[in-house]
């Protein structure tokens, strides 16, 4: 009998700037989850941000430069995975448009974007994970962040994986598909409108009766956590990956109490 050596798929983890700066535990949770799903994980040092702040401010030139960096740093991997629907959406859905009509870059970006996945959908859809090994005793609710939901069709996947966490009860959030009002620079440029939108969201979160709010995008999470804390709410906030990886020793986003 010949022994066949199975090489594991190689994943390049795109950490995302917010996770790098504000919530490293999400990055480590992503590493653990991807490794547990039977892949090896590399973290290229030459990564910064996906470029959305420039892209959404109309600065195409800088966006392209940032995109080229990212593509160069990641194109050697079998998969590129990001713990954020909006950054994965940027890499997967918006990068190709930046290089339209550029014969040198068009095929490169197409090959790159085809390999990009958001973390939770990567685990559920690509790796078929069905044995999440984590425990959380509590009632959680889940917010569907816009880009993940509408650009990448992520809705069932986080619910399926959370269903495998021992002790966890999921309470559906009414209007979970409505924006939380973050919108990147929108939340500071139009802070009053953003505040009205997030207030609507936090009142639904409070009413859900959950004691922990989860989502897959750190921008939205920081926005909602920031509002919940300002309102004196006892609801805590975490990235879904922290719970799936069983890494909940860190204080929640925005601190305790």
């Amino acid at each position: 009998m010949t022994q066949q050596k199975v090489t594991k798929p190689r994943v390049g983890l795109f950490v995302t700037c917010l996770v790098d700066l504000f919530r490293p535990v999400v990055g480590f949770a992503a590493v653990k989850l991807i490794e547990d799903s039977g892949c090896t994980v590399d973290i290229p040092m030459a990564q910064t941000c996906c470029g959305q702040p420039a892209y959404n401010s109309g600065d195409r030139k800088d966006t392209r430069a940032i995109a080229q960096n990212t593509i160069e740093a990641f194109e050697e991997y079998d998969y590129i995975v990001a713990p954020s629907g909006s950054c994965a959406g940027m890499l997967k859905k918006h990068y190709p448009g930046l290089f339209k009509g550029d014969p040198a870059w068009e095929p490169r970006v197409a090959a790159f974007s085809a390999k990009v996945h958001e973390l939770v959908s990567f685990l559920a859809d690509v790796r078929g994970v069905s044995d999440i090994d984590a425990r959380l005793d509590g009632t959680v609710t889940y917010h569907d962040s816009c880009s993940g939901l509408r650009e990448l069709g992520i809705r069932a996947q986080p619910r399926a994986l959370l269903g495998q966490v021992d002790g966890l009860t999921l309470r559906e959030l009414p209007d979970s598909d409505v924006c939380c009002g973050f919108g990147g620079t929108f939340c500071v440029k139009y802070s009053d409108i953003s505040n009205a939108i997030v207030s609507e969201k936090t009142s639904k979160i409070e009413a859900s009766g959950a004691d922990l709010l989860l989502a897959g995008d750190l921008g939205c999470l920081m926005n909602m956590a920031g509002k919940l804390k300002r309102q004196g709410s006892s609801v805590e906030t975490r990235h879904v990956a922290e719970v799936l990886a069983g890494m909940t020793d860190q204080p929640p986003i925005g601190g305790r109490g």
Binding site: F22, R23, M222, K229, G255
Partner: peptide
């Protein structure tokens, strides 16, 4: 309008 969650500490990198 909201609190700003503080960074955990050192960056991921």
């Amino acid at each position: 309008h909201r609190e700003l969650p503080a960074p955990e500490g050192r960056t991921f990198m």
